[in-house]
């Protein structure tokens, strides 16, 4: 038993660590790690990953919420969309053939790789649209000198539409869909990048939680796997977030892209060759 536990903990600590320093979350790495290295069925990997993503989101969100980087109201508005998508996605995960899940996973890895390459700077707006104003979504972030900068929010329905897709992918594939969520908030709704990342991290808990509840209630969460994976991914993610400020993440970006493309290739190959 000790050997199995060490293997699972090593895989999940590594996945949580890389997920945290890449900003993509542990789910993106733990699902393929369980499928490829621990030879687990895709559905088992997805169930275990959803549970661990809930844990890492809770752990990582604490500092962001306390320090005011998370826009809680934007999170609550968009969670309506992600929860809807996640419940539908988690239901479909029980009926969709594994080959489709593997192909979708490969596609999401390529999207995450694209997102990692094309991350851009802030584009702060000073005038929000009427719906965002009615929902009081505007916020403040400190600039380099610590002075607060006011930002406004636009395009809530369009951002919400992409969030339904993010939720769907989360429930289907056991990932947090952080790359899609940050894209929706940063590119479409024009939130500052760090606010988008912190808010996405916070929302991931509810999105993955919705999927995890479907999997748990259906009896699809393998306790034997999910328990050590949840511990390992959480430890890895917390260590990663501690190390992150001391790393030159820009220089690691190409490494993350290569890993994501390799995972996409492996999962795509598995789907097409019927392994």
């Amino acid at each position: 038993m000790l050997e199995i536990l060490i293997n699972l903990l090593t895989l999940s600590v590594a996945a949580g660590f890389v997920g945290a320093i890449s900003g993509l979350g542990g789910g993106v790495f733990i699902v393929p790690a369980l499928v490829i290295f621990a030879h687990m069925p895709m559905k088992v990997a997805v169930g275990a990953s959803l549970i661990s993503v809930v844990a890492t989101s809770a752990g990582a969100s604490v500092a962001f919420v306390r320090d005011g980087w998370t826009n809680l109201k934007v999170a609550m508005v968009l969670e309506c969309a992600t929860v809807t998508g996640a419940v539908i996605g988690a239901y479909l995960a029980g009926v969709v053939p594994t080959v489709v899940l593997e192909l979708l996973f490969a596609a999401m890895m390529l999207q995450s790789a694209y997102f990692t390459i094309t991350k851009r700077g802030d584009d702060i707006l000073t005038k929000g649209d009427p719906l965002a104003e009615r929902l009081e979504l505007a916020g403040e972030v400190p600039d380099l000198s610590g002075q607060p900068i006011h930002y406004e929010v636009v395009n809530v329905p369009q951002g919400g539409a992409l969030m339904v897709v993010a939720g769907l992918m989360s429930g289907l594939l056991g990932i947090g869909s952080g790359a899609l969520k940050v894209m929706a908030m940063d590119y479409i709704m024009h939130l500052p990048l760090k606010v988008s990342s912190a808010t996405s991290n916070f929302m991931i808990g509810v999105t993955a939680g919705a999927g995890a509840l479907v999997f748990l209630a259906r009896g699809d969460v393998a306790t034997t796997i999910a328990a050590p994976v949840a511990i390992g991914v959480t430890v890895g993610a917390l260590s990663g977030s501690r190390v992150l400020p001391h790393l030159k993440v820009e220089s690691l970006r190409i490494v993350f892209v290569i890993i994501l493309v390799l995972i996409a290739a492996e999962m795509g190959w598995r789907a097409l060759s019927g392994i």
Binding site: V83, V87, G209, A210, G211, L216, A217
Partner: peptide, 10 residues
């Protein structure tokens, strides 16, 4: 939505 998730899974 979260409660519906439990029902859907059940």
């Amino acid at each position: 939505g979260l409660i519906v998730g439990v029902l859907v899974g059940s």
